[in-house]
């Protein structure tokens, strides 16, 4: 039993690495989103030839700037999609950990452990059910959050056609908040798994 719990704890350590990777991707995605919305917010302005001041004397400046900005936006959107793919890779890795975790209780054999066995607790050590449940939850949170982020990113091209500063702000807030990954719940899971280290 104890050995099993140790194995699960190792898995949680691995999950922590993926969560750290997730955080890195999160700040990358946020900065990409900010750059994209800065450009989107400027699009209407740069299409207004009255606002070019002294640049009016430069032939073709408006078109050139618009094209350039659209290209930059396109590039940012491409990199955002790449970032999303990396988020997805994290989700897939978490999924694999869950699968391995399930395999662990089966012990590779065909004998299903009894419910009592799974829920058995030794001292403050987590039960095997706690471990498995924790892994499943962490995977679920990140998968849902990945889906949310995907839909936020896919909303950007539409907003480009009809820029709205408040929509962009709302979407950005959604990205910042990560509503599917409540920090205290994640912490709670880790507190159960590593209860003995906390004491």
């Amino acid at each position: 039993m104890e050995a099993m719990v140790k194995k699960y704890q190792q898995k949680f350590k691995k999950v922590k690495e993926y969560i750290d990777k997730w955080e890195e991707l999160q700040s990358l995605l946020l900065s990409q989103f900010r750059s994209a919305s800065a450009i989107i917010n400027r699009l209407q302005l740069i299409q207004n030839s009255k606002k070019y001041g002294a640049l009016k004397s430069v032939d073709g400046i408006g078109d050139a700037i618009f094209t350039k900005q659209m290209n930059s936006l396109q590039n940012i959107l491409l990199s955002m999609n790449k970032t999303l793919e990396e988020f997805h890779a994290v989700v897939i890795s978490l999924e694999k950990i869950v699968r391995d975790g399930r395999q662990l209780v089966k012990g590779g054999g065909s004998i299903q452990p009894k419910v009592a066995q799974l829920q058995q607790r030794i001292g403050i050590k987590p039960s095997l059910a706690d471990c498995l449940e924790g892994l499943v939850q962490l995977h679920d949170m990140h998968r849902s959050e990945y889906l949310l982020k995907s839909s936020v990113v896919s909303a950007l091209p539409t907003i480009t056609l009809e820029p709205s500063e408040s929509d962009l702000e709302a979407l950005q807030q959604l990205l910042v908040d990560q509503p599917n990954i409540p920090k205290d719940e994640v912490q709670f899971i880790y507190d159960i798994i590593y209860a003995e280290d906390i004491c």
Binding site: R42, K51, Y52, G53, I61, I65, K68, S72
Partner: peptide, 18 residues
């Protein structure tokens, strides 16, 4: 007295490296 919008266009132009 270029207004804020014009100044914003200037800064964007600087950035755009057209």
């Amino acid at each position: 007295q270029p207004d804020e919008d014009v100044l914003q266009v200037y800064l964007t132009t600087w950035l755009a490296d057209v």
